[in-house]
Write a protein that binds this DNA or RNA. Structure first.
Length: 536
DNA sequence: GTTGAGCGTT
């Protein structure tokens, strides 16, 4: 195996990194040792100039034609933190400060709720689908060696870490919670959402998405309706969002202004969600955009009905490697999750598990859940890659980490816990039993742009129902009902008997205009006075 | 031999 000598900065002590068989060096390998780096350069002996190393699709290519890295010591290239040079005079430009540090540095993550049987190997195997795992550890009893049911994992890239933190995790049959140790909440400390002012009415969400995607992966676009001359764009990477703040951009010939969407969000968060009353019937629209990727849904606890409402709206419905799988059976969220994007590849099982895109069902198949190339090219902000070619298999973004928010009914359904994933629904969902913290929920929903869509027109391309709107509707009178009755058969669901699955917003594929309408905007009392704060 | 909220022998 060939090794490439790499140091963070020219002159630093190099680390030898293993090259691949074809002689290339994976950027992920580089980033494992140099988080935040995006490329390599070296000092050419002859010209004395610094030369960049060719980079393509997550690989770095040796400068010599014979796949030889030579005897050079390469040093890291880090992305420019901010294109604007003006107002940040506190930043100097050393390579180390460009590493954007605390925010982008990977930390150990605690994994709670592991099955007793989960081993360090299986833990690692599970998380490797998100990116390189530098460490996977199970905490065990010193004497017996028995797992204590939690562990730690560390990733080589911040992006992998973000994705992991943003999702729920079914590991060896247990829904596990992943958090930054000793932290409460989920999500990012740095806001991912920007406010886009001076919009005109003809700038639609696709325009915004297309335009802003060149700076980084856009996870959501929200345009308040009725038209208010502003919109919100959410990026996967908070630093991309931050880098754009304060800038003017021209979209469709219109100069729009990007600014921070955070301040009022902070107020909302710190004031314990004062604007959000979840039992009043307010209708919180669905986070509308679901990037390509795996949408893993379990009906076990009845929390995932919202996933049935994935609107893949026009233009975005290219569905690269989509995989929407339902795991479990009989629960809410079952049965109506059908194929998006026409790539149904897996099998339906007899318990309403819908595996599309070839992902295996962990429960049924007993093999690791395969996220299939979900991991895209790591930190590549401002790389000019747009759309499908630039962002591969964007996944893990479909659901907030509700468990980490305390929206978790494991505790309320203990009799049904454990490995019995195929009969979860004696439990139903007792909404009042959910330990919800409105502030946390609001924060999370804001994080995922789940709030504020209530004003969107049903026929907009950015809409749909969601978990909370469903909650709001069904819990209007604090009724203590377990919602586990009735239901109707999903039109495209061959396995849904309709006996227990209650389906709202049937996913009758390609139903942009219909999907979710059955339960969006049904409530009363939502805010109609729209200003920026209503969306933060 | 059990368990199910937690925070790691560095």
């Amino acid at each position: 195996m060939d090794f490439v000598q790499v140091s963070e900065e020219e002159g630093d002590e190099p680390i030898e990194l293993p090259a691949e068989e074809d002689g290339t060096l994976l950027i992920s390998t580089l980033q494992a040792q140099f988080p935040g780096s995006c490329g390599l350069k070296y000092r050419n002996i002859d010209s004395k100039a610094v030369r960049g190393v060719r980079s393509n699709e997550g690989r770095l290519f040796p400068p010599n034609a014979d796949s030889d890295w030579g005897e050079y010591v390469y040093f890291c290239v880090f992305p420019k933190e901010n294109k604007r040079k003006s107002d940040d005079n506190l930043e100097n430009s050393t390579a180390k400060t460009k590493r954007i540090e605390t925010r982008l540095r990977c930390t150990d993550l605690i994994v709670l709720g592991l099955a007793w049987k989960t081993t360090e190997d299986s833990l690692r195997e599970y998380f490797e689908s998100y990116g390189e795992v530098l460490m996977a550890q199970i905490k065990k009893d010193g004497k017996s060696g028995q797992s204590k049911g939690f562990g730690f994992v560390r990733f080589g890239s911040y992006e992998a870490q973000m994705r992991v933190l943003a999702n729920r995790h079914l590991i060896d049959g247990r829904w596990c919670e992943v958090k930054v140790p000793n932290s409460k909440g989920v999500g990012h400390q740095v806001p991912c959402k920007v406010f886009v002012g001076r919009c005109t009415e003809d700038i639609n969400s696709d325009d915004l998405r297309e335009y802003f995607s060149k700076f980084g992966e856009v996870t959501d676009v929200f345009i308040p309706r009725p038209f208010r001359a502003f919109s919100f764009v959410t990026f996967l990477d908070p630093d991309v969002a931050q880098s754009l703040c304060g800038e003017d951009h021209i979209i469709k010939g219109v100069s729009v202004h990007v600014s921070n969407a955070a301040p009022k969000a902070e107020q909302s968060r710190t004031h314990q969600g004062q604007n959000y009353n979840y039992n009043s019937g307010n209708n919180f629209g669905m986070h509308s955009y679901h990037p390509q990727g795996n949408h893993m849904n379990s009906g076990r606890n009845g929390h995932h009905r919202g996933n049935n409402q994935h609107n893949l709206h026009g233009g975005d419905n290219t569905a690269i490697g989509n995989s929407h799988s339902n795991i479990g059976s009989g629960g809410y969220g079952m049965g109506s999750n059908n194929n998006y994007g026409g790539n149904l590849g897996g099998g339906y099982t007899n318990s309403s598990n819908h595996n599309s895109g070839g992902n295996m069902n962990r429960q049924e198949a007993g093999i690791p859940y395969n996220r299939q190339n979900n991991f895209h090219g790591m930190n590549q902000p401002h790389n000019g890659n747009v759309g499908n070619s630039g962002w591969m298999n964007r996944g893990h973004l479909d659901m907030p980490n509700l468990q980490a928010l305390g929206i978790n009914s494991q505790g309320s359904s203990s009799s049904n816990q454990g490995q019995n994933m195929n009969n979860p629904l004696g439990v139903g969902l007792n909404l009042n039993s959910l330990p919800m913290n409105p502030a946390l929920v609001a924060a999370a929903l804001n994080q995922w742009s789940l709030l504020g869509n209530q004003l969107q027109n049903q026929n907009q391309d950015q809409q749909g129902g969601n978990f909370l709107s469903w909650m709001a509707q069904n819990n209007g009178g604090h009724s203590n009902s377990n919602i586990n009755s009735g239901g109707r058969k999903g039109p495209n669901n061959p396995n849904n008997s309709g006996s227990s699955a209650m389906i709202k917003g049937d996913n009758s594929a390609s139903n942009d205009q219909q999907n979710g309408n059955s339960w969006s905007n049904q409530s009363s009392g939502s805010q109609n006075s729209v200003d920026k704060s209503n969306f933060l």
